Simulated scan of single mutants.
Amino acid sequence: MNNILVTGSNGQLGSEIRKLSSNYDYTFFFTDRNSLDITYEEDIKEFIQTNNINTIINCAAYTAVDKVESDEVNADKINHLAVKSLAIISKEKNIKLIHVSTDYVFDGKNYKPYNEADETNPNGVYGKTKLDGEVAMQKVNLTNSIIIRTSWVYSSFGANFVKTMIRLGRERDSLGVIFDQVGTPTYARDLAKAILDIMPNIKNEKVEIYNYSNEGVLSWYDFAKEIMTMAKIDCIVNPIETKEYPTPASRPHYSLLNKSKIKEEFNIIIPYYKDSLDECLRRMGERK
């Protein structure tokens, strides 16, 4: 029997894994910061031993990108030091660890989709602490464990760009959305399914990094336009530059991810972003 610990299970990805869990012959233990605080190493050890855990999917993260700019200590505890603890424990107990990271480890100055070996250079605290977590995990040098970098995550669960656009689109006649940040959205349900599908086939001598997002290339403006079109919301979306919408944290202007490695090594098909957006809106009851 495969006993799987899913941390951060009330977030978008964790919620999607929970939703899909009945389709898989595993025993899942879904935790959040109230039931298992991963910043306490002894608590993790006790939980793992008590429940005979042999796989960890770490969805827990401090993802409030703007807030972490003034809360680096707590971001470091969750995004870096907790990951280090999970890695050390996983190595000691021969546990498979799947850790979810972000496109924010890059500075967004590339001219072609980032692959896993490209140089990292985070712009802000969020990206820095997530990268520190990656590096710590790699230094522990555990086997059968991977890091998955993703981008622009949305879901029918939690707060996200899709839900915000639907709400604002119904409240306003028009709104401005940034057009000079380019990447690809990731439907958390697609990523959750990919993780659960590839999990039995993860076999590597050192920590491997993989990229995952949906297929396609677009800006936040394009994404907003598509949301309004699919949901049939009569709101004018205007393109604006990043400088017109200042935020505490700097966002990558270009965060396209090359997914060739994960597709080839695990023989998976990644859905096109419009197809996934359509499915998510239908699940939300918003597809008109």
Rank of each mutant, 00 (worst) to 15 (best):
P239A: 03
D132K: 14
I44H: 05
Y212K: 02
T150H: 02
Y245A: 09
K19D: 04
K206Q: 03
P248F: 11
K203G: 02
I202A: 02
A117N: 00
P252W: 01
N2I: 03
I269D: 15
I53F: 05
A192E: 07
K274Y: 14
K274F: 12
E119K: 12
E241P: 02
T129G: 11
R167L: 13
Y114N: 14
Y221F: 15
F47S: 08
T120K: 10
L218A: 09
V65R: 08
N121A: 15
N123F: 03
S156A: 02
D197E: 13
I53G: 01
I88D: 05
A188N: 08
I227V: 13
I195A: 03
L175S: 01
M228A: 12
E134C: 13
E208P: 10
R283P: 01
D275M: 00
P271G: 04
V162H: 07
K130I: 08
S90F: 06
E119T: 13
L36A: 05
M228D: 05
L36F: 09
L81I: 14
R149E: 07
D103A: 09
K19L: 06
A224W: 06
T31D: 12
E92F: 13
A75T: 03
E72G: 05
R149S: 05
P113R: 10
L277M: 14
V65P: 08
S213N: 04
K93M: 01
G127V: 02
I268K: 02
T50N: 15
D43A: 13
I53S: 00
E134M: 13
N34G: 03
L175D: 02
A117E: 04
E171M: 15
L86S: 08
V162R: 05
L256K: 10
L142E: 03
A159T: 14
Y245F: 09
G8A: 01
N121W: 10
Y245G: 02
D107F: 05
P252D: 02
N211Y: 07
S174E: 15
D71E: 15
N54W: 10
N51Q: 05
M137T: 11
I38H: 03
R172D: 05
I57Y: 09
L13I: 15
D234G: 12
A159Q: 10
Y187E: 06
F28S: 11
A224D: 08
G158D: 05
V105E: 06
K19A: 09
Y273V: 07
K206S: 06
H80C: 15
V83K: 10
Y40E: 12
S156I: 05
D180S: 08
E116Q: 04
K45I: 09
N258L: 01
A188E: 02
L281E: 02
N144P: 11
T247A: 04
V153P: 07
K274P: 07
I146T: 00
V125M: 11
A231S: 10
T63M: 06
A188C: 08
T150Q: 03
Y187N: 13
Y273E: 01
E205D: 13
A60R: 06
K130F: 09
L5H: 09
E226R: 07
S21M: 11
D71P: 09
P239V: 01
V83C: 07
V65C: 10
